[in-house]
């Protein structure tokens, strides 16, 4: 019984029953398969988070984002005062996370590739692109670079899914994806 010392003093010499050996073998092979799936997906899969990231400061990152906004703003979003920015494909695009907004709004083309830079001005935030459901963490002082190729058109929301204080639930952003002009 498991609540008493092993009945067999030299328990480590006991042979192991067949079904246990079989199950341990199956489980071990499965473990290796699962382990290999991750590097295999890096080679053959299309959804891998790049390891590209830089140290930055809120000021430096904000300056880059503002330069992009100045250059590529196409309109304002309704009467919210938030610029909608449509940078050309292949361009570096920036999005600022801060209490409590994602700034600016982006307009991207379906099937085109962009280098999306994310960083926070203050606390940690969670970039959660809906409804396609892509989630990454955004830190202050770090600039994450994702190479994204949208495959769905329409209005996409960016929900903040890292708790960032009392206004957390109002922190919404937007990315428009349009078909090629």
């Amino acid at each position: 019984m498991a609540i008493f010392p092993p009945a067999e003093r030299h328990w480590w010499k006991e042979p192991v029953e067949k079904s246990e050996v079989l199950w341990v073998s199956i489980a071990f092979i499965w473990a290796i398969v699962m382990f290999l799936m991750m590097p295999i997906w890096h080679i053959y899969g299309d959804q891998n988070l790049a390891n590209e990231a830089y140290r930055t400061t809120p000021e430096a990152f904000a300056a880059k984002a503002e330069a992009m906004v100045e250059k590529y703003t196409v309109r304002e979003e309704g009467n919210t005062g938030i610029p909608v920015v449509a940078p050309p494909a292949g361009e570096d695009v920036y999005m600022i996370a801060r209490l409590w907004e994602w700034w600016p709004i982006l307009e991207l083309e379906k099937g085109k590739t962009y280098r999306l830079h994310l960083s926070s001005m203050d606390w940690q935030h969670g970039f959660s692109l809906q409804p396609t459901n892509i989630n990454v963490q955004v830190h202050p002082g770090y600039e994450l670079v994702m190479t994204v190729t949208p495959n769905s058109t329409g209005e996409h929301a960016i929900v903040c899914n890292e708790f960032c204080g009392i206004g957390h639930h109002t922190m919404l952003g937007r990315i428009y994806v349009v078909d090629k002009k």
């Binding site: 979003e77 919210t80 938030i82 907004e101 969670g126 959660s128 809906q130 409804p131 459901n133 929301a157 929900v159 903040c160 899914n161 890292e162 708790f163 206004g167 957390h168 639930h169 109002t170 922190m171 919404l172 952003g173 937007r174």
Partner: peptide, 24 residues
């Protein structure tokens, strides 16, 4: 969660937000 609902979130209707989004 598979449908994208965030954890630690008071209002997934986003009633007080400037922009809007509706979960399914």
């Amino acid at each position: 969660g598979t449908l994208g609902v965030p954890r630690r979130h008071w209002d997934i209707a986003f009633n007080d937000a400037t922009l809007d989004y509706a979960f399914s």
